[in-house]
């Protein structure tokens, strides 16, 4: 949409939006220089440079242990949510049986419910049944609930741009349903699957409140330990943690974005 208002007349708008963008992007980056500080203060710019906070981070079992827990939880959540979420999206795509809509709404609803409520609910269920509190399985199942809407929405969008009759053709030529899905459908929705995997991994990796309610002791996730440290004793180790988290949560989406753009250009 081009405009009949000159750029000069709109200068104030550009400046205002520039300031908002600065407010959105710049503050987070401050954790990077602070993580290389040589002192215990969180001042910016740091008085001197060192990598001591990274040594501190990698030297403490509390941090390293929680990183492993988080990576394991996020990987399990990603696998489970992507598989059962894709199966559900496949089943619900273009289907009009009686419960289809109810199921669809239920699967997306965790997005609308405040996560503190989901966390409290899961805590009550685990506390009542016993045995699920503070277990890896318990945390993974909890994260599966909050990651589900992202997988469902991504896969629904993926299936909506895919012509299901191709799979029908494969089946009419003698392929089994599963074979038809893996050899005809899956290659064409692979980007949606990759996006769904990435989203479910990141949602789990970032999730705090469920982890706070149901995961303590040996299954404390990185976000839980970070939050506790942030509340109780702040030091630049947190800046090192934050820098690493920035890397983990921003590099994979960027890589996927570039990869998708490049492949699409090639296919054209």
């Amino acid at each position: 949409m081009e405009s009949y208002v000159s750029h000069r007349e709109r200068l104030w708008l550009y400046i205002f939006v520039g300031l908002v963008v600065f407010y959105l992007v710049a503050p987070t980056l401050i954790v990077i220089p602070v993580s290389f500080s040589s002192t215990t203060s969180l001042s910016f710019p740091p008085p001197g440079w060192s990598t001591r906070w990274y040594h501190e981070f990698f030297g403490q079992p509390k941090w390293i242990g929680s990183v492993w827990v988080s990576l394991r939880v996020a990987t399990c959540t990603m696998i489970i949510t992507t598989i059962i979420g894709t199966a559900a999206s496949y089943a619900l795509h273009q289907s009009s049986f009686r419960f289809a809509n109810t199921i669809k709404v239920t699967l997306v609803s965790p997005l609308a419910v405040p996560s503190i409520l989901i966390a409290v609910g899961i805590f009550f269920v685990y506390a009542a049944t016993g045995g699920m509190l503070n277990t890896l399985t318990g945390v993974v199942l909890g994260h599966t609930v909050v990651a589900m809407p992202f997988v469902i929405l991504t896969m629904m969008a993926g299936f909506s741009s895919y012509d299901m009759s191709q799979e029908m053709v494969a089946r009419s030529l003698g392929a089994s349903r599963f074979k038809a899905f893996t050899s005809v459908t899956l290659p064409q929705i692979k980007f949606s699957v990759a996006t769904a995997m990435l989203l479910s991994f990141l949602v789990s990796f970032d999730e705090l409140i469920i982890s706070m309610m149901v995961a303590s002791g040996p299954v404390s996730t990185l976000s839980r330990v970070t939050f506790a440290t942030l509340r109780d004793d702040v030091d630049p180790t947190l800046a090192a943690v934050s820098t690493l988290m920035l890397l983990i949560t921003s590099v994979p989406p960027l890589l996927l974005h570039i990869y998708v753009a490049r492949t699409k250009r090639k296919e054209r």
């Binding site: 059962i84 979420g85 199966a87 559900a88 496949y90 089943a91 619900l92 289907s95 049986f97 419960f99 289809a100 199921i103 239920t106 699967l107 609803s109 965790p110 419910v113 409520l117 989901i118 409290v120 609910g121 899961i122 009550f124 269920v125 199942l141 909890g142 599966t144 609930v145 589900m148 469902i152």
Partner: peptide, 21 residues
């Protein structure tokens, strides 16, 4: 078949969110 495929995801959300609420 479709119900069966959708049920694992539905069960997880129903048991861990709808029921607890």
């Amino acid at each position: 078949m479709r119900l069966k495929l959708a049920s694992p995801a539905f069960l997880v959300v129903a048991v861990l969110m709808v029921l607890p609420l």
